[in-house]
Write a protein that binds this DNA or RNA. Sequence first.
DNA 1: GTCTATATTTGGATAGAC
DNA 2: GTCTATCCAAATATAGAC
Lengths: 201, 201
Amino acid sequence: MARPESISDEDLLSRLAPVFRARGYEGASLAELSEASGLAKAALYHRFPDGKLAMARAVLAAAERQMAADALAPAPPRASPAERLHAMAHGLLRFYDGGRRTCLVDVFSVAGTPDAVRADVRSGAARWIAGIADLLVEAGIDPAEARRRGEDAVIRIEGALVLSRALNDTAPFERVAKTFAADLLRPAAAVHPSRKETSDD
Amino acid sequence: MARPESISDEDLLSRLAPVFRARGYEGASLAELSEASGLAKAALYHRFPDGKLAMARAVLAAAERQMAADALAPAPPRASPAERLHAMAHGLLRFYDGGRRTCLVDVFSVAGTPDAVRADVRSGAARWIAGIADLLVEAGIDPAEARRRGEDAVIRIEGALVLSRALNDTAPFERVAKTFAADLLRPAAAVHPSRKETSDD
DNA sequence: GTCTATATTTGGATAGAC
DNA sequence: GTCTATCCAAATATAGAC
C-alpha cells in the first residue's frame, strides 16, 4: 500500500460509479471521486484528460454494458421469452440493489449535466427500450405494441426507483420487479371495450 | 425599474421554482435564483433567513399546494370517481407542462439534498399516494388494492417524467396521462390464475 | 502514473449603505 | 426591503516533483 499501484480501468469505473449515481453529475465533486477511487485528483485527470465529463461518460458506458449483461441477456437466448423476462427482472433487482441504487438515466438527464452526457443517456435509454421490445416481439407481440410495452417497462422501473428513493423504502421497486414479466406478457390488453382509448381533451 | 419594489411571496416562489425544478437542490445556485427572481442575493436572504434550504422547502410546499389544487381536486367532489380521475390526468398534464417539467419528488430525493427537504419530499409523496388511494376507495376499490394502485399511479407519473426528460420527448408522459384514469379503474386485476404472483427467488 | 501544491472560479452567506 | 461589496469555503483544473 506504500507505493502508488495502478488500478484497472474496470475497477476504477466501479469505484467512480457510486458517486455519480448517488450525487448526479453536478453533485459528484472531484474531491469525492478522488476519495472513492483512492486516486488523487491529478491522477484522475491523467486517466481522464477531459476531466469529470469523461469520467461520467465512461461510467455511463460501463453501466450500459453491465445492464446488458445483468438484465437484458442473463438467460440463454434459447430460453423462452417468459423465462428471459423473469431473468431480466432478477437482473434488475441485482443491478439496482433491490431499489437502493439510483439510475443514471434519471440523475444524468437533469439540466446542468453536460450535453454530451445527456446525449449518451438519450441513446442508451432508446437502446434499452428497443432491447426489451425485441424480446417481446420474439414472444409474439406485435412490434408497435412491443415498443409501447418496452417504454412502459422503463417507465415502471424508473418510476419505482424514484418512489423507492423518495419514500426510502424498497417495497415499490420490489413490487414492480415481481410483476415485471407478467405485466409485459399480459394478454392483448383488452382495452376497455366500450370506450376505446379514453377520449379526454 | 428604478426603485426596488417588493414582490409577493407567491410570485417569488413561482420564479424560484423553475430553477429548483430544472437544476435540483445542489444545482440551483444563488446566482441563478437571484437572476430568476430579480432579487439580489442579499434580498433573498432577507426573505429566507435560512437561505437556500428555506427557499427549497417553500418551493416544495407551494408545489404541493398547487398539485392539490390542479390535480387532486380539480373536479367537484360530487363528480364520479372516473370523472375526477380524468380531471386529475388533465391537471397532471398541465402541472407538468405536458411532461417538460421535472418533478421535485425526483430531483429533491437525491443524495446531497438536505435531510429536511428530503423529509418533506417523503411525507409529500406519501400524502400524494394516499390522496389517489382515497379516491379509488370511493370508487369501490378495496383499500389495500387502492393503496397499490395509488403507488402505481405515482410510479407511472414519475417514470414517464424521467423517460420523457431522458428522451427529450413528451410522448411517454402524454401516453401515461391518456391511460391514467382507465389504468387506475381497471377491473379486479385478474392476476394470472395459474401461477399466482410469480414465485421467483 | 501518482503525488503535493496551487491557480482560478464559483459556491453560499453576510455587512452595511440607502 | 433591496442594494453593492465582500468573506470564506469548495469547486474544477493544472503545474511540476518523483
